[in-house]
C-alpha cells in the first residue's frame, strides 16, 4: 500500500517589497545623512572644544581668585564681621578669634597660638611706650 502523503498546509509568507516611494525616501535620507554627518560631527567637536576652553579658563580663574581674592569693600567686611559678633558660631580663645577674623574679614594673616607669642611671630609696629605717648596726645 502506498503511504499517504500528508498535504503541506504551511503557507509560505511572501515579503512585500517596499514601494518605490518608500525606497526613494530611504535612499534620500541615507544620502542626506552621509552628506551632513561630517558637518554634524564637526559642529559637535567644535562645541566640545569651546566647552573645554571655557572649563580651562574657569579653572585658571578659580586658581587666580584663590591667590588674589576679590577686593571686598571695607564697609562690607565690617558688616560681615559685625554679623558674626552678634551671631557667634565659632569660639576659641581671644587670639584664635582675632586671627580668624583678621584673615576672614581683612585679609591679614597673623601667626601665633597665644597672645604672648604674637610678638615672636609677627611684626611689632608700636610698643607700649609709643602707645602711652599716643594716649597722652589723643
Amino acid at each position: 500500500m502506498k503511504p499517504k502523503i500528508k498535504p503541506n498546509y504551511r503557507i509560505k509568507t511572501v515579503k512585500k517589497r517596499p514601494s518605490m516611494l518608500l525606497r526613494g525616501v530611504a535612499i534620500g535620507a541615507t544620502i542626506l545623512a552621509l552628506k551632513f554627518a561630517p558637518q554634524f560631527f564637526a559642529a559637535d567637536a567644535r562645541v566640545a572644544k569651546i566647552n573645554a576652553e571655557i572649563a580651562a579658563q574657569n579653572k585658571i580663574l578659580a586658581v587666580e581668585r584663590q591667590k588674589n581674592p576679590p577686593m571686598v569693600p571695607l564697609e562690607v567686611r565690617y558688616k560681615n564681621g559685625k554679623r558674626e559678633i552678634f551671631n557667634p558660631n565659632e569660639h576659641g580663645n581671644c587670639t584664635a578669634y582675632v586671627k580668624r577674623a583678621a584673615k576672614k574679614y581683612f585679609g591679614k594673616n597673623y601667626l601665633g597660638t597665644a597672645a604672648w607669642f604674637l610678638p615672636e611671630e609677627n611684626k611689632v609696629v608700636l610698643s607700649a611706650l609709643s602707645l602711652a605717648k599716643i594716649k597722652i596726645q589723643g
Binding site: 583678621a102 591679614k108 594673616n109 597673623y110 601667626l111 604674637l118 610678638p119 611671630e121 609677627n122 611684626k123 611689632v124 609696629v125 608700636l126 610698643s127 607700649a128 602707645l131
Partner: peptide, 9 residues
C-alpha cells in the same frame, strides 16, 4: 593696649 602688630607676610 600695649603693642600694635602687623602681619609678617
Amino acid at each position: 593696649p600695649l603693642v600694635v602688630f602687623a602681619p609678617k607676610k
